[in-house]
Design a protein around this nucleic acid. Sequence first.
DNA 1: CTTGAAAGGACTTGCGC
DNA 2: GCGCAAGTCCTTTCAAG
Lengths: 163, 163
Amino acid sequence: MSRELDQTDWRIIAELQEDGRLSFKQLGTRVNLSPPAVAERVRRLEESGVIAGYRADIDPVAAGQPLSAFVQMRCATGRCLLKTTRADDFPEVVEIHKLSGSSCSMLRVRVTSMAHLEGLFERLGEHGEMNTHIVLATEYEGRAVQPPTEEARTVTRSAGWSA
Amino acid sequence: MSRELDQTDWRIIAELQEDGRLSFKQLGTRVNLSPPAVAERVRRLEESGVIAGYRADIDPVAAGQPLSAFVQMRCATGRCLLKTTRADDFPEVVEIHKLSGSSCSMLRVRVTSMAHLEGLFERLGEHGEMNTHIVLATEYEGRAVQPPTEEARTVTRSAGWSA
DNA sequence: CTTGAAAGGACTTGCGC
DNA sequence: GCGCAAGTCCTTTCAAG
């Protein structure tokens, strides 16, 4: 389906992650390509699903939701959050990941206040054991997707027990 | 600094999170406003920092980084990841959050393969205890920031021990 | 892939409500 | 604060080399 991405594709991806509203002309200038050439590449990246869309980046703090937390759920049998509720029931839950290990899922929640967070935890707690971690500060998130480094291919194998 | 956001602002925010490349004309049609009116509102949202930017939404799976994990770090004294390394040392780390509780930070990492993940864990492990959770599937993430619900203001107080 | 041209659309400004 | 309308600029998209 998706052909290998070359260096120019990755430069385009990097630029569009920094500014998703660049015109083909502006984008072409930054990657040393003519407007029609970048337009064709971008079209292919969109078609292959590498570029899933273009979004405004909303700052939750400025938007009035300064508090964030991680919640590991270990759902009780028959009460699993994923099977007994819908997304609309918990607008505060902005991410849901199914996990390996002892927890069944990891949630990321955003709330307006501590009181709001308290209420949310009580509602979530009805579905099983929780392990919560309040975020004190976010160093960064949404870091740009980058081309695989050389380390990704030449992985250092651990010594011992090797065949 | 930031005036209260009204309903129209939230509609604009919702539309731009769905499609960050909408023209003022298109955006105005969707929120029942003229192009100059939306342009002025968007300009203010950008100035106040609510709209932090516009980014292409890159699908990590399609981009060749199908594996993701959460890593809780409990850094050893003097070896804290945040103080002894720089972001460029770990391009696989796409999020860093400082946490309350027993862990000092929560990382989100993205890698190309299990071998890559193994190597990364070994490098991270040198900075302290780790608690890792591999993501099996992501239900959703990057859910749109939404206006505060009524529940956010009228929070149910728990019974008992109340003053 | 690049260049060049033509067509279409977007952004802005000013004015009136 | 919003809408309407006009002018200017830019962008996009063809075609040809």
